[in-house]
Design a binder for these strands. Sequence first.
DNA 1: CGATGCTTCATTTTT
DNA 2: TGAAGCATCG
Length: 795
Amino acid sequence: MNSTSPEKWPRPDTDPPEPAAGSISARAAAAATPPYLDGLNPEQYEAATTLDGPLLVLAGAGTGKTRVLTTRIAHILTTRRAFPGQILAVTFTNKAAREMKNRIGKLIGGVAEGMPWLGTFHSIGAKILRRHAELVDLKSDFTILDTDDQIRLLKQVLAAENIDDKRWPARQFAWMIDNWKNRGQRPKDISGGDGFSFAGGRGGELYGLYQSRLKALNAVDFGDLLLEMIRLFQDNPDILAEYQNRFRFTLVDEYQDTNVAQYLWLRLLAQTRTDEDGETLPQNICCVGDDDQSIYGWRGAEVENILRFDKDFPGAKIIRLERNYRSTSHILQAASHLISHNEGRLGKELHSVGEDGERVAVRGVWDGEEEARAIGEDIEQFQRKKHNLNEIAILVRASFQMLEFEDRFVTLGLPYRVIGGPRFYERKEIRDALAYLKIISSSANDLAFERIINVPRRGLGDATLKVIHALARSQSISLFDAARILAETEELNTRSRRSLASLMAMFERWQNQKETSSHTELAEIVLDESGYTEMWQKDRAADAPGRLENLKELVRSMQDFENLAGFLEHISLVMDTEANSEETDKVNLMTLHAAKGLEFDTVFLPGWEEGLFPHQRTLDESGRAGLEEERRLAYVGLTRARKMASVSFAQNRRIHALWQSALPSRFLDELPAAHVKILENQNNYGASMGNNNVESRFDRNPADFSGNYNTPGWQRAQQQHAQPRTPMARSGPKQIDGEIVGRDTGSGSSQMLGNRVFHQKFGYGEVMAVDGDKLTVEFDKAGTKRVLASFVEQH
DNA sequence: CGATGCTTCATTTTT
DNA sequence: TGAAGCATCG
């Protein structure tokens, strides 16, 4: 809580006037004094010191974006334009927020009480909502549900409404609701069209029911943290004005990733500012982002927001940061040329300040296994040259690609770490342990109670739970209270009753101990006495020891907090623990998405094949926009590399169970030949298998492969290389929005209606219906089946 | 209530 | 192919 009253803050007109940024006096002053401005290039300097009015900083990859943001905050603080509590700074991830805090601290020498309003959209939302909870029908101690709780609650709602959860899975509905909330839509805003796509038109209605259940539980989900904040501001202009006045400066990181709800919220808060005299002033908002790195469109991010900035904030100044300090020239030019194929962009030209370096390597291999082998060998080479493994990363499009690398690295004995992956808080054991603690903290948490009532097994299954539910509903009390009553009555059979009574007694004891023991001690006691630890000790599954380790880690991480409540609030919003230490030297393995914001000396980019990258599904679902987002992903991947980037593609890849031949990704063609070198394929499987006399570009000396990828030889090589064995489907190119986006990969699904096809499992049949990439096929022997288009061959 | 076999599905994921 | 969730049986 920030208790500083607005009256005590310096008024703008009483502050010393700030010299106009970029003026001679400003520069002179900067040169003379603040060390934090040292070493900024002119654009960075301008971005950090232009404090008044709306500002958009287009910061290309590796151009010092975070540096500008943190320096700007340092500048605001040291020039006394605002107190820490008057600066709103939002990020998307906790990691980014953390890093910013650290770097500001370093710049101005340890911030005493930090920045209270520097955080993620969601953590700031939670903070504001807790202050005004009653205005949005909540109590200030509302709980924040995570995805898992959300789905369990949705299942209940759907079950209560007799919705067949096989046809209409709760998961899918959770995703829809998330999307609605990302777009700022509340149940009443769900038009027929959107609502009809779920449960035969009941989508909007069910969404409403879910929301009332949330209110009844005094709970919100992540989307609500934004949505309710918007509602709060819209319905209470006085409160909005209070915050508009409080925040003298607003900074937004990764603006290209904002969704509609976040945008609406920012606009409410930062478009104008009304001062005490009722005058409307332009707000000092600074958004930093890169339209070329927008890769989260699929989860609601609107690139439009950044493209439209100067219309939303009239008089906005736009500064481009185009000096790249990260990558060598070859890598940068390759990436720039690739991204120039996108149309919807603000346009930026990155320049390297470094050396030319090495060209981007491109290598074709026979299959995924060979790809892993080749990259493994390369890495061993680096290792021999004493390169740091921490400085090497493999960036894949989809996580299943990681398996092959893990296999290979294990056999090589090459240490590696996977970044991203399942999160700490998502682990079952952590969620269970947290559920216990949540109940102790607030016994009304029904979802937590349901989660652990029978974990470990104590004979309290569905039957018992049903009785508890019934009582809770009829009396309008929490499950916990209902259970306590039932433990003392004859409603249940003896065995269940005893078991329940002992559980309730334990909780009572723990709740009392909350006062006397520290929260870490309490956690240990709870895990021990509940039998939870024992449950995993007895479990002989391979992952059981790891889970016990995680539980220890959980208790350890609690030490950083003063009390249980503080820990739980943190965990429901942050929930990641920085477990991946960089102490040991390991190769990094992650998805392209997870790589955003990171950089490495050497980057391997495997799997550049049509259908995988760009991913077929993105193309099918989002057409041209999807293709552009995939291209941005490729751009992000390349620009992670400081010194070396190596792209590869396989001619054959095993997708679920079966082999598919693949074409090299179109993105390869979009790399400029002048900045690329073709690697000789060492094992040369491709040449030895099946395409004997065909001259392929891999047989050539890289030196005389000087032209572009449109040479006849390249075209021919592609044709011959890609389809050496299986004659795949030859349907026409896929058209979406009148543009060709889907190259024939053997899985094109349009124009297949009525065709004869062959399926590995079901044999021959005729296509009766086409639904995206799914086909309804009447098979000669197996009957009518729904199959994936990519699983059939046309005949 | 709990274990076992069956079906289904397979891109990216933060908060 | 393999995991995960679900339904059914003991």
